[in-house]
Each structure stands twice: as C-alpha cells, then as structure tokens.
C-alpha cells in the first residue's frame, strides 16, 4: 500500500481523522441543540418544528450526505489506523504497565469508536431509517398540537423500552470517553498546539465531552421516566 502524500501517509491519516472528527463534533452540537428542544416540555411542538426544518431544507439534506461521507471516512480511516497499528507490533509484551504512561481511553479509541458505530446503527434504525426511508411509518404517530409530523411521539415510543434506554446511555458513555481523547487529539493532529492555549483546549475538550453526552443521555432517560411529555 502506498503510504505517501495527502491520502496515504501516516500523517495524512491523522489529518483526516482530525478533520472528520471535528466535523462530527460540529454535527453533535447541532444534533444535541435541536434535540434539546424537547426540554421545552411543550408536547414536542418546538422540537418538531426544528425537526421538520432539518428534514426538508435542501441545504441541510445536502449536508446530510457530507455528514455520512465524513462519518464513513472517519470509520474507514480509523479501521486502517487500527489495522496498521496492530501490524506494527507482531509480538506483544508479555508484561506491560500501559496505565503508568497513558489513559486507557486514549489507547481504546478503536473499540470505543466501534461501540459508538454499533450504537449508531441502532440509532439510525430507530429514527433516520424510519422517518426518511420507510414510507408511511410516521403516520402511526399522527401530528402534534401544531399539526406537524410528530417525531416527538416516535421518540416517546422508542424510549418507552427500558432496554433501549440502557443502550442509548451506554452509547453516550462510549461517546464521552471517545470525545475525552478525540477532542483535544484533533487539535494536536492538526498541529494546533501552543503552550498558551493547550490548557484551554484541554478544558474545553473535557467540558464538551461531558456536556454533550450528558445532554444526549438525559433525553431517553427523561422520556422514560416521564419527566417530559
């Protein structure tokens, strides 16, 4: 395999990982922001309004394609890194104290990423496939108080199952650890490292890694516990 240039070299893989990672992070912001509309606790009207916008706006729909491309690139690139890195040490240590010099989650990005991917498949099946691709599947949920397609009702339905809630919370947990490393790692990969700002980047990274997954996890939990109706 050619390992050269802006696509094959080990550094290029880092750049793509970082760029797609940061792009996915911006998506998380949007996604979390819109979903947080459920906390208006208005029977999902505000949420459904935004969901409708997101589902029909041409620019957003185009960006969805870019998002998928980014996700696939992130996954494929990650798998390639994982494979090459495994191959680089054919004989492993008999006894190693990795925890003495690094964090377990930094060493486990491949596994954490895989868990997130598995979660994503479930998640996409629950929402994206049903709403966008199975005609008539939303009719079951009727319309909300404002007469809009009721995605909120779909959410309530999905999160009525405790098993699903557990899976979602675990997914958010994986995301938390993944972000704990990924956020600041992306900056480092792009060479954005400066003693003056490193602390701020790390703090922002930790804050982001906590806020976003907690926000996400709170949604199924709140709905299941009936805090939001």
């Amino acid at each position: 395999m050619a390992r050269q240039g802006l696509f094959g070299s080990s550094l290029a893989k880092k750049y793509w990982m970082a760029l797609t990672g940061l792009f996915l992070i911006t998506f998380l912001v949007v996604h979390a922001g819109i979903n947080a509309m459920i906390f208006f606790n208005d029977g999902g009207v505000t949420f459904n309004t935004w969901a409708h916008f997101m589902g029909t706006n041409l620019i957003i729909r185009t960006m969805e394609l870019v998002l998928f491309a980014g996700l696939i690139l992130h996954v494929v690139d990650g798998l390639m890194l994982w494979k090459q890195n495994r191959a680089a040490r054919p004989q492993d240590y008999v006894f190693a104290k990795h925890n003495a010099n690094s964090k377990w989650y930094s060493r486990s990005m491949g596994i954490l990423g895989t868990l997130i991917l598995l979660f994503l498949i479930v998640h996409l099946w629950h929402f994206w496939v049903k709403t966008r691709h199975i005609a008539g599947s939303m009719e079951l949920y009727g319309v909300d108080a404002a007469g809009q397609e009721n995605l909120f009702a779909l959410m309530s339905d999905v999160f009525a199952n405790p098993l699903v809630v557990v899976v979602y919370v675990l997914g958010c947990f994986s995301l938390f650890w993944h972000l704990m490393h990924g956020f600041k790692s992306a900056f480092q990969s792009l060479g954005l490292n400066h003693p003056r700002y490193n602390g701020a980047i790390a703090a922002l990274g930790t804050a982001f890694s906590i806020v976003v997954p907690v926000l996400f996890a709170s949604m199924p939990v709140s709905m299941y516990l009936g805090w939001i109706k």
Binding site: A100, K103, H181
Partner: peptide, 29 residues
C-alpha cells in the same frame, strides 16, 4: 513499518530526555 501516531502520549511520558509532544504537533504543522 512503524505504526501511526494517535496522540496517546505514552512516548512523552517514557522519554528519558523529556521530549515534548509539542514537537509532534510541530511536525504535523
């Protein structure tokens, strides 16, 4: 055939001469 850097940081921790990860960022740039 060396592996790819994924910013784990073990190298910096174990380097006997305390070479900083800042250098890796510089190489990335």
């Amino acid at each position: 055939g060396f592996g790819n850097c994924s910013n784990i940081g073990a190298c910096e921790m174990e380097c006997p001469k305390d070479i900083s990860l800042e250098n890796i960022a510089r190489l990335n740039r």
